[in-house]
Design a protein around this nucleic acid. Structure first.
Lengths: 137, 137
DNA sequence: GACTTACTTTAGAACTATTATAAACTTTAA
DNA sequence: TTAAAGTTTATAATAGTTCTAAAGTAAGTC
């Protein structure tokens, strides 16, 4: 992903390109594979890969702005340590979850097919459907 | 559900039948339909229906003991307020989730059928599969 | 480039769900 | 009835997250 693209991500999220935000965006979006992270793990990656200082609040704010703009999705899963997982894969998809390692693995939408799905209850509509496949060793 | 059954639930969870625990067990297990709750909501129900006092820790301990004994299940979902949901339905099943009302609704196992499921990654086995269908109005 | 305004970062306080602690109280079984 | 073991309780501790307000930075204007 190009520098312009990083700037676009920031602009389209309503964020000025500060040093911290550019580093976060680079770490999140300059990659080929899906990236699953928590705010804490993202902070550790940033500390390792850059010399910039990041307050926790900055990471929270930036991640939430990206999420709001649709550049990140939140995984609707209650992990072991009760942390929130984010995913750079914003397409419709599912997850394997290994509770022993707290690791998430993407499952492509086309790897799961349904034969039967219940109708939404009275007056409600289905917004989306998430599958979590829990793993063990 | 009979009184003996309540006592059995307690005994099989390794719990002595104290006043608090009997009230909690009655509220949870003396019912026909599935009951979804958080520790907080359970506390409110107890306050409304009984004259007994319940420390939060007592509710947590009792609910966890029931869960450990297999009389309750925990819903692996990150709700809006980041609370843990418990379910008196311990059979294999799925859920509708309405994030506007934070309400869970059971979906019977036989209401969802799969045509295709991915294999577990390298060296792992599938423990179980949970479907959350998110609702909107 | 200097200035002004609006936006950002930051450290630390505040908040919320949950778990731990230790003293007072209850159940159990002899 | 009594001693031992288990339980409740209020409160402190913990962990993830959000809030706050002061100091710092970006962006547009002159």
């Amino acid at each position: 992903m190009k520098k312009t693209s990083i700037l676009n991500k920031l602009r389209s999220s309503g964020l000025r390109p500060t040093k911290q935000r550019v580093e976060i965006a680079k770490l999140l979006f300059n990659r080929d594979k899906t990236f699953h992270f928590t705010v804490e793990s993202l902070g550790k990656h940033l500390a390792k890969k850059t010399t910039t200082k990041f307050a926790l609040a900055t990471i929270y704010n930036t991640v939430h702005a990206f999420k709001k703009a649709g550049h990140l999705s939140e995984v609707h899963l209650r992990g072991k340590n009760n942390t929130t997982y984010f995913d750079t894969n914003i397409s419709n998809h599912h997850h394997f979850y290994d509770s022993e390692t707290s690791e998430l693995i993407d499952i492509n939408d086309n790897e799961i097919k349904f034969d039967k799905i219940p109708k939404a209850p009275n007056g409600k509509t289905i917004k989306n459907l998430e599958v979590i496949i829990n793993l063990k060793n």
